[in-house]
Amino acid sequence: MNQTVRDLWFMLLMTTICTVLLVVVDGIYLARLAADPALMRRALQLVGSAPGEDVRRTFDQVFTTVTHQEFPGGFFVGKQNPAMVVRQEEGSGLWGKITLLVAYDLAQNTVLGIDVLEHSETPGLGARIEEEKFRAQFRGLAARHGVRAAKIKFKEGEFDGVSGATLTSKAVEEIVNAAIRKIRVVAGPGGTP
C-alpha cells in the first residue's frame, strides 16, 4: 500500500514537471513563431508598407499582434487603422498544405489582398495562384459574404479561378473565407479587434 502511494506520487510529480515544461516551451515557441521576420516582411508588403531597414521596428509601427484563444496564431491589426487585419491561414490544397496571408478591411468589408506563403500545387496549373495576375484580383475585392471562385464573375466577392485547377481555386476560396470568418469573430460586434 505504502509503495503504491509513493509510486503514485512519483508519477504525478513526473507528469506535472513534463507538462509544465511543455507548456512553457510551447509558449516561447508560439511567441517566437509569430515574430518571424520573413512573415513580417510579407505582411508589410501585403498592405503596401515598405519594410524598411529594420523589419521588426517597421512591423511594430504598423501592426499590433492580437491573439485569440480559439484560433492559434496571431492576427496582425493595423495600428493607425484598426479595421485592417492580416491573418495567416492554411488549408489543404490538391497535393498538400496551402498557406495564405489574407489582409481584410472590416470597415469596408473588402479583401485588401492575399499572399501565397507556401503551397505544393501542380506547376503550371494550381501553382499559378502564386502569380501576380491571380493575386491582384483580390486587391479591393468586396466580400461582404465571403469570396467565391467563379468561371464568369458577375457577383460580388467572385474571383476568376485558375483554369484547369478547380480544386486549388476552391481551396484558396475556402482558406480566404476561413480567414475572413476568424477575423470577424476576433473583431466581435464592435467591428474592430
Partner: peptide, 28 residues
C-alpha cells in the same frame, strides 16, 4: 525512485518531452 512497474511509462514521458523541445527548436 522509478517504480519498476511503470518504468517504460516514465522513459516515454521523459523522451517525448525532450523530443518535442528539440522539434520546436528545429522549427525555429
Amino acid at each position: 525512485r522509478i517504480p519498476a512497474t511503470y518504468r517504460m511509462l516514465v522513459f516515454m514521458m521523459i523522451t517525448s518531452t525532450l523530443v518535442i523541445v528539440f522539434d520546436r527548436l528545429l522549427k525555429l
